[in-house]
Design a protein around this nucleic acid. Structure first.
Lengths: 173, 173
DNA sequence: GATAATTGTTATGGACCATATCAAATAACG
DNA sequence: CGTTATTTGATATGGTCCATAACAATTATC
């Protein structure tokens, strides 16, 4: 919880004048004690998630894809011919919020809305050729620069275990 | 990525008329294929984090504490006599955004700002008696209703492994 | 003692999330 | 058939969180 993304300047703190120290620390230059915080699931989960997203964005800087946009492209590629409601809801995106997101992807010619002939209310979603190409490049970047980092950090078997536990939490918590 | 928190109605979908099936699926009632998405670290991390926060809020409903507020109280208790900048920055909260947060906690008499005599610019943060009492109750709720759920789900050793890997990601990714 | 840096604060804008509402199209049903 | 209810994409809007600029008061630096 409560973790932002700004880089800290971390200039040298002034030395402690050691005047009226009352209980624990007033103006001590020492680092704060995290205490039980570092054992809180939510806290460490959130910090990890922010770091991972941050890294994802760096890896995708050349393609200008956010995690959310990448997940949409992946899902549309795997499920062509579905409409907005279906794609949005399986990603947990509310239909109203999905509109602007698709406007963006469509304006960049990455995907297209096609009026369905079966049900003229709905828009069928498809990747454009450019969208397929961009997604292919994105996958490579993610695999080599992003997910690979997990292997370097945890090792393959731990990586698998982590993903499994996170999925279990996401589905059964 | 891209996971909201709304409950889905999930009323029965109408049966497939099976008309002009072109490539994969137009209007099929089947569930969508997540595909590579379920192997994406960021995706599963985000989903897990949302579920955990959601559960946290339910457990703390009686105390009306968000994860962020809980983390502030924990940190102030562990580090009494620190000022706003120090508490905020170690939590990754930007100073401007920390003001309203403290206004809230202070208005509920959970913590107090005290003008430092050493440096009359800074506000020393302390928990009030009520703040200490509420935090104690919060800790119990979190331990028995929230963190205990992880043990039930993963087992103690897996829980420890998960926390360790997440911390590693948060610190070294 | 003049200048720079720090602290808490306000104002503000952006990104994301959630709800209500609408028109067009379709489904349900008498 | 025709009336009503439901669904789909869309708009408007508000809330929350995150980030930056700027300011007054205070302190540090030189």
């Amino acid at each position: 919880m409560t973790v932002s993304k700004t880089a800290e300047k971390s200039s040298e703190k002034p030395a402690d004048t050691a005047k009226g120290r009352k209980d624990a620390a007033e103006g001590s230059g020492e680092a704060l004690q995290l205490g039980e915080l570092s054992e809180q699931l939510g806290y460490v989960l959130k910090r990890a998630q922010l770091k991972v997203f941050e890294n994802f964005l760096r890896c995708m800087a050349s393609l200008q894809l956010t995690p959310a946009q990448f997940s949409v492209l992946l899902l549309v590629e795997k499920n062509p011919g579905r409409n907005q409601t279906e794609i949005a809801s399986t990603l947990g995106i509310l239909r109203p919020n999905f509109v602007a997101m698709l406007d963006n992807l469509e304006s960049r010619d990455l995907c297209a809305r096609i009026r369905s002939t079966n049900d003229r209310r709905s828009h069928i979603l498809v990747l454009t050729d450019k969208g397929k190409a961009v997604l292919a490049r994105a996958k490579k970047l993610v695999a080599t620069k992003h997910e690979a980092r997990l292997n370097d950090l945890l090792g393959p078997s731990n990586r698998e275990a982590l993903l499994g536990m996170l999925s279990k939490i996401a589905n059964e918590f």
